Amino acid sequence: MSRTVYVNGHFVPENEAEISVFDRGFLFADAIYEVTAVLNGRMVGFDGHMARLRRSLRELEMGLPTSDQRLREIHLELIDKNALQEGLVYMQVSRGAADRDFAYPAPGTPASLVMFTQEKSIIDSPVAERGLKIASLPDMRWSRRDIKTVQLLYPSMAKMEAKKRGADDAWLVESGLVTEGTSSNAWIVDNDNTLVTRELSRALLHGITRATVMALANSHDMKVEERGFTIKEAQNAREAFVTSSTALVHPVVAIDERPVGDGTPGPFARELRRLYIEASLNSAD
């Protein structure tokens, strides 16, 4: 059955969806996106995603063709039209269509808004049970990683290189420190049982799930420290894990073929995942 998608003001079957060949998202990756998880037919963390979307828009001096309330309504309508119970809603905003020119088009050029749903098993994820194997790779992305743009070619290349090495994903390293995963924030649990994740900056995405996990950890008397760490420190840590909107919390069991801890998902990652799912199901929109 064909999905219903949203393109510039219209709900259409996916095989009828069209976007201009002159759209700057297509020509220049001049676009941003957000992915909102859906559990039991309800959105998780929508307000956080909207706040980050607005921040990305401001950083790129880009407009948005509708209000936050209308975006919420479109999300909910897509979930309803596609009878989505578990998965995600993808939203992309580009600067719109104009003749190809590196300079931005004139003010008033309508932005493009595209949205679709995708089914995905989130709660009963097999990765959460077995854990991730990670390969470390140099971070060769542009320097404004705090803006959630669609410039995702290098993360895709890194993920594929990790798979060639027998791993599930990559952690990206710059100046000797882990920045983040290809599509997630990276965490370790040190020998003092402190949760460690990179401090916020332009070097990494300001994860919505990262913020929620940090709040959950603090409310359950888990120590959290925001700082960089090396691959060697991560390999010697008690635990490691990643956070993202659709992974929630996934444990890391090996880095560059070296086991982390005893090589199985650890208690902190399991407990944080449980707490996150519980909180999300209770607070979803």
Rank of each mutant, 00 (worst) to 15 (best):
G25F: 06
H49T: 01
R55K: 05
F46W: 06
L39C: 09
I32K: 05
A31L: 07
L53H: 05
S56A: 11
D47Y: 02
R54A: 14
F26T: 07
V35S: 13
M62N: 12
A29S: 15
L39T: 08
A51H: 12
N40G: 09
L60G: 09
M62A: 13
L39M: 10
D30H: 11
R54K: 10
F46G: 00
R54W: 03
V38C: 10
M50P: 02
I32F: 09
T36S: 12
F46Q: 00
T36N: 06
R52K: 14
M43G: 10
Y33D: 03
I32R: 04
V35P: 09
V35C: 12
V35H: 13
R54D: 14
M50C: 09
R58Q: 14
L53T: 08
D30C: 10
T36G: 02
V38H: 07
S56Y: 00
A37F: 06
R55V: 00
E61P: 04
R52F: 01
A29L: 11
F26N: 04
F26G: 07
M43P: 03
A51E: 13
R52L: 07
G41L: 02
M50N: 05
A37M: 10
H49L: 02
G41E: 03
G45M: 04
F28A: 14
R52A: 08
S56G: 15
M62W: 06
M43F: 11
V35Q: 13
Y33N: 07
A31S: 15
E59P: 06
F46H: 00
S56I: 01
S56L: 04
R58N: 14
R54Q: 13
L27R: 10
F46V: 00
R42Q: 12
V44A: 07
N40F: 04
A29M: 09
L57H: 04
V44C: 13
R58M: 10
M62D: 08
L60D: 13
F28N: 15
R58W: 01
F46Y: 08
M43E: 07
Y33M: 04
E59D: 11
H49R: 03
V44Q: 05
R54G: 09
G41I: 01
S56T: 01
F26V: 12
G45K: 05
M43I: 08
T36K: 04
N40M: 02
Y33K: 01
R42I: 00
R42K: 15
T36Y: 05
M50A: 06
V44N: 05
R42F: 00
M62L: 15
E34W: 12
D47G: 04
L53G: 01
L60C: 12
A31G: 13
V44P: 10
M43K: 07
R42P: 02
A51W: 00
R42E: 02
F28M: 14
L39V: 09
F46S: 00
R42G: 04
F26I: 08
L60P: 11
M50Y: 11
F28I: 09
H49E: 03
L60A: 11
G45E: 09
L27W: 13
R52V: 00
V44I: 13
A29F: 04
T36C: 14
F46L: 12
G25D: 06
M62F: 06
N40A: 13
L39P: 08
L27V: 05
A31Q: 08
R58D: 15
R58T: 02
Y33E: 03
V35T: 15
G25V: 03
A29C: 15
